[in-house]
Amino acid sequence: MHSADTPDQTLRIYYLSEEAVTIEFGQVIDLHLLDRVSVLNMLLHQQPFAGFCTAVPAYATLTVFFDPLSVSRSDLPGKTCFEKVSGFLQNSNRLTKGEVHNAGNVITIPVCYDKNLGPDLEEVARLHKLSIEEVIHLHSAAVYKAYMIGFVPGFAYLGGMDDQLTTPRKATPRKAVPAGSVGIAGAQTGVYPMQTPGGWQIIGRTPVKLFDAGRSQPSLLQAGDQVIFKPVNRAEFNELVGE
């Protein structure tokens, strides 16, 4: 049983600003809720309303941005933009009935789990009384789910890590974590798309660009995607960096 509502129930929608409303599907991190967010997001992009601008999926919410001028002039029923957009979203939600699963794309990310590129690899292993090889195996055997893109452009919060690797953040965050660093924070794992300060435990690095403003889809990962980490050695890493 899920605490969340089901598609045939009324959505909980709240006001975020004059140009945005948020649909709240629940208040927990849950694959079923993520599906609900993804499916409605997809449908909204396929069948948008006049004035629809963009939508931001998060763990259990979908926030819909719009142009108030266009919405207020549209013939959607309702006195205010909030009423017009909410009404439209309630109807869209009824259309999602039955279609409640969005597998997402499967993205494979090569990672070099190397002590130089993953300065916390040894500490994570020691903390959990595992060998470095076991840490690498556990981290690269799982299929992760991108719950949300946030923090900095292209950063995906990944769920699905093996419980044995759950590790608290570093007591003192680093002033600069290099781009591509693969880290662990609590039960989550993720990849730093660009050099930023950060407190995650760094266990490796990918040569792949998680975010590139020059690409038509700048963020490699989208909410709802499945992610697999594939171990590569240092020579392969260097070769991939060169590409």
């Binding site: 963009t54 452009p153 889809q217």
Partner: peptide, 10 residues
């Protein structure tokens, strides 16, 4: 820049 909010672009 509004169209890339879902990719965490401010």
């Amino acid at each position: 820049r509004r169209m890339y909010l879902s990719q965490a672009v401010s």
